[in-house]
């Protein structure tokens, strides 16, 4: 039984969802880790990425690649809309505005008025045909040994983790460039950056757009892997999962989000699978219903965020020395 739980957790931790969340966290790392921008609306960027694909293909019958581009462009527009009013204000205003904007989007997309385009509360489905048609893997066998991934799942994982790698490299290259130097100086002290002739607003905007687009790619991947989008997938807690991943892996560490995503989903997978197994085996108290499994896991995410932030803010791999420096 324990082996089953472990295999299940491992399967979750390398699955398409973990890859999609790694992308969300990479985007957040650009925002929060490197630039110091508090984006609490990453779920909104994910939503436009996912619906960009779904609406283009499912509602309008357009090609898949166009859908991905539409999703990314929508993320650019969203970042501009959010950034213009808030990037000149204190960091917490951006936090409030982004979480509000993500909720506005979700409510708009699930409304009856939007149903002809977005499918309302039911969302959209069956838009990934072209993506899976590209799958070169023979589908008469299972992959990854005990993890037994189907050819379709394997294909999503391959593409997903490749994109994760690509985005990690992109962020890595950018952060070690002079551009990244300006970005990090803004995180340290934006007035200092300004006094040295840097257009802080423009750089923050670039960071917001870039991280948002990476989040939107994560959304597109998420939608393709599930073959369905529903507005209520994009609740604010999605953003906070991504934050937990980011803090777990270590903010401002280039590979942190990837490692964080794998570990986070391993732990969460173990919790969910373990609780379900025990629940099915009747080993849990009666009041521990089906809903309780989710509730316990989410409570755990909260405890994880709190305790990491309090006791190990550098993440599990980070270097504490750097954090102890007096950041004025």
């Amino acid at each position: 039984m324990l082996v089953d739980i472990l295999v299940d957790a491992l399967r979750t931790s390398v699955g398409p969802t973990a890859a999609a969340y790694a992308l969300l966290a990479i985007g957040l790392n650009m925002h929060f880790g490197f630039t110091g921008l508090l984006n609490f609306g990453q779920a909104g960027f994910m939503l436009v990425g996912a619906y960009g694909v779904a609406i283009t293909v499912s509602t309008f019958g357009g090609p898949l690649f166009l859908g991905v581009i539409v999703g990314m462009l929508a993320a650019v527009v969203l970042a501009l809309l959010l950034g213009v009013p808030t990037l000149r204000l204190r960091a917490d205003y951006l936090a409030i505005t982004t979480i509000a904007a993500a909720e506005i989007l979700r409510l708009l997309f699930r409304s009856t008025a939007a149903e002809p385009v977005t499918g309302g509360v039911f969302g959209l489905r069956q838009f990934g045909g072209a993506f899976f048609a590209l799958n070169p893997l023979p589908d008469d066998r299972a992959y990854l040994g005990p993890l037994a991934a189907s050819a379709g799942r394997m294909w999503v994982m391959l593409v997903g983790w490749s994109v994760v790698l690509l985005m990690t490299l992109l962020v890595w290259a950018l952060i070690r460039s002079p551009w990244g130097r300006v970005i990090r100086s803004i995180r340290e002290d934006e007035d200092a950056a300004r006094s040295l002739g840097k257009n802080v607003f423009a750089y923050k905007m670039q960071s917001l757009v870039l991280g948002g687009v990476i989040g939107a790619i994560g959304g597109a991947l998420f939608a393709l892997s599930l073959q369905t989008v529903q507005p209520d997938t994009f609740l604010p807690q999605v953003t906070f999962y991504a934050f937990a991943i980011l803090i777990l892996g270590g903010t401002a560490s280039t590979f942190g989000p990837v490692i964080g995503a794998v570990i986070f989903w391993f732990i969460l997978g173990m919790l969910l699978s373990g609780l379900r197994t025990f629940s099915d085996a009747g080993l849990l108290p009666e009041f521990f219903g089906a809903q309780a499994v989710g509730a316990v896991s989410l409570t755990f995410v909260g405890v994880l965020i709190m305790s990491l932030m309090i006791f190990r803010p550098q993440g599990i791999l980070g270097d504490k020395k750097e954090l102890q420096l007096d950041v004025s």
Partner: peptide, 14 residues
């Protein structure tokens, strides 16, 4: 602020 989000998660899901 991030800690308060964690706290919110804990209260809500308890």
């Amino acid at each position: 602020l991030v800690v308060s989000i964690g706290l919110a998660f804990v209260i809500r899901h308890l």
